[in-house]
Amino acid sequence: MIEIRNLTKRYGPVTVVDDFSLEVPAGEAVALWGPNGAGKTTVVRCILGLVDYEGTIVVDGLDARTRGKAVRSRIGYVAQELAFYDDMAVLDVLDYSAALRGLTMERVDEVVETFRLGDHRTKRVGELSGGLKQRLGLAAALLPDPPVLLLDEPTASLDAHSREETIGLFEDLRAQGRTIVLTTHHMEEMGMLVDRVVAMENGRIVTECPPGELAERLGLRVWLHLIVDPDERSEAQRVLEEAGLGARRNAAGLVVEVPAQEKGRALALLHRAGIELRDLEVWT
């Protein structure tokens, strides 16, 4: 469904996407994962024709450079946040998007119902919570019932509750068999949302793999902040260090560095030693 060949994008002397190639078959969900500045969003903008580029992008058999309108008619795009139409009412945003696509107002009513926006249709976009804004963005993107969805950091600015709700919506879309390209720097949500992860750094592909294998492939590590009672901290530190995990104490508990795919190991060690864990934070 999407074929990208030798995509390169330069801003002056800086190359932000460097000889990037990717094929996404119909129905596959792919995440472009990487730190800020890796080039993920630029790839999405190239697909949409928002920026000039070298290389070839073909969507559903159509060249994105010469058939931009036709390509975009097949794509639903959700940006990080629908923040630019703060003064418009929810229904007006959807009406505008539908009018641009030549769709009927009946279709607007359908997505309003599907995305449970009925109670918010007269609210200004600026009054909506982050989660509702994303729901609106998704509703607008799905107005034409597109076969391809481009989701650009769709959960980046959301609180935990909104993020969970939005991820739930994306899971439904994935189950419908749409082709999805998602950019994210959150590792934990990819397992729920995509079939394949393309890790990027400095505009290049570092590795491609199923989401569950990414941490091990890249040797990614996280820090666990383990909150334990003060009289058990020394014992907890000893247990973890004996197992080869570097641990240091702080005012609230212990900080342990572990491979990202082995977070449960430290917890299991403490559990087996009979040390009660009061709380837990994961620092990435």
Partner: peptide
């Protein structure tokens, strides 16, 4: 202004040239 606030990207993500 539309470029700065992302409105142009929203508009041109539609089948609009």
């Amino acid at each position: 202004s539309q470029r700065e606030h992302g409105a142009l990207r929203f508009l041109l993500s539609h089948p609009v040239n």
